[in-house]
Amino acid sequence: MNHKVLNKDSLEELTNLFSSAFTDSEGENEGRLIGNLVSELSSKIDNQEIICFGTFENGSFIGSIFFTRLRFKEDIRVYMLAPVAVSTNHQGKGVGQKLIRYGLSDLKSRSVAIVTTYGDPNYYSKVGFRALSESTIAAPLTLSMPEGWLGLSLTEEPVSEIDDQPTCVKAFNDPVYW
């Protein structure tokens, strides 16, 4: 298994992977929704505001994650991890966790201080994420399930309070994802 940074050239492969994985696990509507999100994110990958990593095994594309920049008034480097997909026949084998750890290591080398995500606390706690109060770091939009807002410090310091409402990349600026 190997991991690498992906670029805009991977748009079709990324869209297909996410659409398929989310359709299989969450149904056709969710597959279409996340496929559209990934298509938009993929077309804007710049390795700064939108960073994408992929996992390959024996030449096959089996998993991917996105990290997108959250912007605050103060200059603090915070990224959000979402979405994550592993091909259905490779799920349950630790592929996603290994890919997330790889991505977090890469972000740490870029001096990123904090990573947030919005998802299943049971899954993301396996790679170090913990519940994050919106009084510590607010989500960019209103959360439908606040218990899914999670954070992880990539420094020696704990996640510190940021007294500011962040803005997210355009693709995530839709209440349907929150």
Rank of each mutant, 00 (worst) to 15 (best):
T136N: 07
E134H: 09
L14W: 03
Q97M: 10
V169M: 01
Y124L: 00
T23M: 06
S25I: 03
N16M: 09
T116H: 14
Y123C: 04
D24G: 10
G35F: 04
G35N: 06
F172L: 15
Q165N: 12
R77C: 07
D163F: 06
L37P: 07
F61R: 05
P121H: 02
T142V: 13
R77Q: 10
D24R: 06
R77P: 00
P158E: 11
E57F: 08
H90I: 01
Y124P: 01
V78M: 03
A171N: 00
D9H: 13
P146M: 06
Y79S: 03
G59Y: 08
N2S: 12
G94S: 12
A85N: 08
T142M: 07
N29T: 01
T136A: 09
L17I: 13
F172H: 11
L143Y: 10
L41R: 06
L33A: 12
L37Y: 04
W178P: 06
L17N: 14
A138I: 03
S135A: 01
E13V: 00
D106N: 07
A131F: 11
S111Q: 12
V169A: 00
I100F: 05
V86H: 09
C52G: 04
L104G: 06
V159R: 12
K73F: 11
A138S: 14
T23G: 04
S144V: 08
E49Q: 12
V115Q: 11
T15E: 07
G103M: 07
